[in-house]
Structures are given as structure tokens and as C-alpha cells.
């Protein structure tokens, strides 16, 4: 199955169910969820803890298998992909931004950013060259040789964002990207993510609890009890003034 994608495709979830076994108990994390996400817009997934947000983005990113239903991401049928195909799909098409940054502590900022390129077969030298350019674009040109421990939380998250987009993925998945950083850094991070969503016409999904960042979204999908419970669209103008709504 090919893992190169049609750039204009978005995300489509049809009747997706995900069940976990917790000892003898079975937990239904997603219950027949339906969702469509278009590229070129920033979509926030919001809802209370345990509503299935993280499970949803794990399925869409191809790091978890659905129990039933259909998931199409960037024109690819994830449900019927083999494990190896999913791995290749993630390497080429998915960028990740994690709540706790998940930077490799032994690598410098530039080396961390270079990792997805190395995974995709780039040489170290070329990957570091490209990483330097991307780090510059997120305002960290002067921090590229710093270790994660030498950077502030906001700077670490910007490194993580640079790492998430360095290989130009068509799907950017962000899990609570502002919850571990202060409000001011959170604003910078969300502005970056929004800009990346718009400029490359990529599918950008952000799972968040943080109501202060709602204003950055083009669309807010609310979840409850494993289902989509509502959604709200905002005009680009609203989104651009997101910081003023907080």
C-alpha cells in the first residue's frame, strides 16, 4: 500500500470505535465517532479528561489501531494498513508535538529537529543543515546547539514544533502543546502552529484543555464520552485575534 499522500486530502473518521481492555473490564474510549477535518485549517479537539481526545489523535496519527470503523488520513486507509506501512506513513507524513515535548535529552536542539529527517534516510550533515533553517524559522537560531535542559519550556516546545514540521508532514498532531508552558510562551507556540497550518495547507489538529488558546482555531470540535458532542467554526478574523479573546 502506498504511503505517499494526496496533499489536499484531509482526515475522515466514520463510525470509529476503540475499546481497551483494563484487566477484566472493557473501556469504550470511542463510540462510533464521525469526524471530517480539512487541510489548511487549525482544528482544536477539546473536551473533559477521559472523553477520548488522545485516543482519537492516536488513531489518526497511526500510533494506535481502531477496534472498528473507517479512518482515512491524507487519502490513505489507516485501518487496513499493516504495522510496517503505518510506521512508514508516520515517518513521511505525520509531525508530532507532545505535551511534555519528548525531546531526546542527549541531543542538541538542532539534532533533535534533525531526527525525523534521519529517520527518513537523510544523512546527518544534510539533516542538521535543514534543521538549522527550520530552527531559525521558529526563532531559535541562536539556541540550536543547546541541550533541551538548557532551554526554557517555551523554547523546548518551539524546538518540538520545529521537529514536528522539519520533514514537511501533511498532518501535524499536537497533544496539549501549551499545558506545560507559561501563558506567554503558549501564545507564541499557538501562533507558530497556526501559521504552520495555514502556510503549508496541512491538516493540523491540536488536543487541548487550555481555553486561552481557543481563539487560534478555525474550528473547535468538542468531545464527550467518546463521541463528537458539538463543533464551532470561527472565521479566520476571529482566529487571528485569538489572543484578545482570552
Amino acid at each position: 500500500m502506498p504511503t505517499d499522500v494526496v496533499k489536499t486530502s484531509g482526515v475522515s473518521c466514520q463510525s470509529v470505535t476503540k475499546e481497551f481492555n483494563r484487566g477484566a473490564a472493557r473501556v469504550l474510549a470511542l463510540q462510533g465517532l464521525n469526524l471530517q477535518i480539512s487541510p489548511g485549517e487549525l482544528t482544536l479537539i477539546v473536551g473533559p479528561s477521559g472523553c477520548g481526545k488522545t485516543t482519537l489523535i492516536s488513531l489518526i496519527a497511526g500510533t494506535l489501531d481502531a477496534t472498528s470503523g473507517e479512518i482515512s488520513v491524507l487519502g490513505q486507509d489507516l485501518v487496513h494498513m499493516s504495522k510496517r506501512e503505518k510506521t512508514t506513513f508516520r515517518a513521511r507524513n505525520v509531525g508530532f508535538v507532545f505535551q511534555q515535548f519528548n525531546l531526546l535529552p542527549a541531543l542538541t536542539a538542532a539534532e533533535n529537529v534533525a531526527v525525523p529527517l534521519v529517520i527518513n534516510g537523510w544523512t546527518k550533515a544534510k539533516a542538521l543543515e535543514r534543521a538549522a533553517v527550520v530552527l531559525k524559522s521558529v526563532g531559535l537560531a541562536d539556541r540550536m546547539h543547546f541541550l533541551p535542559a538548557e532551554l526554557s519550556g517555551g523554547q523546548q516546545q518551539r524546538v518540538a514544533i520545529a521537529r514536528g514540521i522539519v520533514h514537511d508532514p501533511q498532518l501535524l498532531v499536537c497533544d496539549e502543546p501549551t499545558s506545560a508552558i507559561d501563558a506567554k510562551s503558549g501564545q507564541v507556540v499557538m501562533e507558530l502552529i497556526r501559521g504552520l497550518a495555514l502556510e503549508s495547507n496541512r491538516v493540523t489538529m491540536v488536543v487541548t484543555h487550555d481555553q486561552r488558546v481557543f481563539g487560534f482555531a478555525d474550528r473547535i470540535v468538542s468531545m464527550d464520552d467518546g463521541r463528537v458532542s458539538g463543533e464551532q467554526r470561527q472565521t479566520p478574523a476571529d482566529a487571528n485575534h485569538g489572543t484578545e479573546q482570552r
Binding site: T87, T88, R90, A91, F98, P116, I119
Partner: peptide, 16 residues
């Protein structure tokens, strides 16, 4: 393990 998990999520194959 978390670092290996991150690499795995980013698409690093089991062989590598």
C-alpha cells in the same frame, strides 16, 4: 523507554 517510544511514534522502524 519514552525516548524509544517517541522515535517509534515518529516512524522509526523496529529493525532500526
Amino acid at each position: 523507554i519514552k525516548q524509544f517510544g517517541t522515535l517509534k511514534a515518529m516512524g522509526l522502524s523496529d529493525r532500526r
